[in-house]
Simulated assay, not measured.
Amino acid sequence: MSAAEITVASTQYLTFRLGDETFALDVAEVREILDFTTVTKVPRTPPFMRGVINLRGSVVSVMDLRLKFGMSATEQTVNSCIIVVELELEGDQVVIGVLADAVQEVIDLEPEQIEPAPKIGTRLNMEFLVGMGKHNGSFMMILDLDKIFQGADLNIDKAA
């Protein structure tokens, strides 16, 4: 078995819903899942940054992926939650909360179940997708959080 074959083992993904679409995150990035709670708005931040929450004494920024992806804002329902994730931002590990309409399940995907992100001309930026996962006859978009939230997006000091 070559070194390349060793590194392509199955990976676990947390699946969640935004509207009618299913998305997935590598479980290694997920720290915990919280009930939707009161989010304190922070002035002069991008619209997709809904605010901050108190997570056991730490301030955690909460991002709305629906707004980031051009959808309507996430509404609080019985199923909505905050997925607390850890990502790398300009060399630092950063903890943020990501709003989801509903968390579904943790699944295993083999490398052959993941297709490359679609190439749709040059006008649409699909860099934030690791690929499209196939599971039980349907597709899900596997997200690369590090690419979704680039440094400029989260730099509050420069937000005007």
Results as ranks from 00 to 15, higher is better:
Val8Pro: 02
Glu86Ile: 05
Val78Lys: 13
Ile96Val: 15
Ile156Gln: 08
Phe36Met: 11
Ile142Asp: 03
Asp64Thr: 09
Asn136Cys: 03
Glu115Lys: 09
Val39Phe: 08
Ala28Gln: 11
Phe149Met: 08
Ser61Cys: 06
Ile114Asn: 02
Val98Trp: 02
Val130Gln: 10
Arg123Gln: 15
Ala159Ser: 15
Ala152Glu: 11
Val39Asp: 09
Thr11Val: 09
Gly151Ile: 03
Arg44His: 15
Ala3Ile: 03
Val60His: 03
Asp153Ile: 05
Glu127Asn: 12
Ala24Trp: 01
Ser2Met: 03
Leu129Asp: 03
Ala3Lys: 02
Leu18Val: 08
Tyr13Trp: 06
Leu145Lys: 00
Ser138Tyr: 06
Glu88Arg: 10
Val60Ser: 04
Gly91Thr: 07
Val8Asn: 07
Asp64Ser: 10
Thr7Ser: 08
Ala159Gly: 03
Val85Asp: 00
Gln113Thr: 00
Gly137Ala: 06
Val78Gln: 15
Ile148Ser: 07
Glu75Trp: 01
Val85Asn: 04
Ala9Gly: 07
Ala28Tyr: 08
Leu55Gly: 07
Ala159Asn: 14
Arg44Ile: 06
Ser80Ala: 12
Ile83Trp: 03
Arg17Tyr: 03
Met63Ala: 09
Met1Ser: 06
Glu110Ser: 15
Ser72Asp: 15
Lys68Asp: 04
Ile96Cys: 11
Glu88Thr: 14
Met63Arg: 02
Gln113Pro: 01
Lys41Asp: 10
Cys81Tyr: 00
Asp153Val: 08
Ile142Ala: 07
Ser61Glu: 03
Asn125Phe: 11
Val39Ala: 08
Val30Ser: 04
Pro118Ser: 14
Val8Ile: 05
Met71Tyr: 09
Glu75His: 09
Glu115Leu: 13
Gly51Asp: 11
Leu124Ser: 14
Thr38Asn: 03
Lys134Val: 10
Asn136Pro: 01
Ile114Leu: 04
Val95Pro: 00
Gly57Met: 13
Val130Asn: 07
Met71Arg: 13
Gln76Asp: 03
Arg123Ile: 15
Val84Asn: 04
Lys147Asn: 13
Lys68Arg: 13
Asp146Asn: 15
Gly133Asn: 09
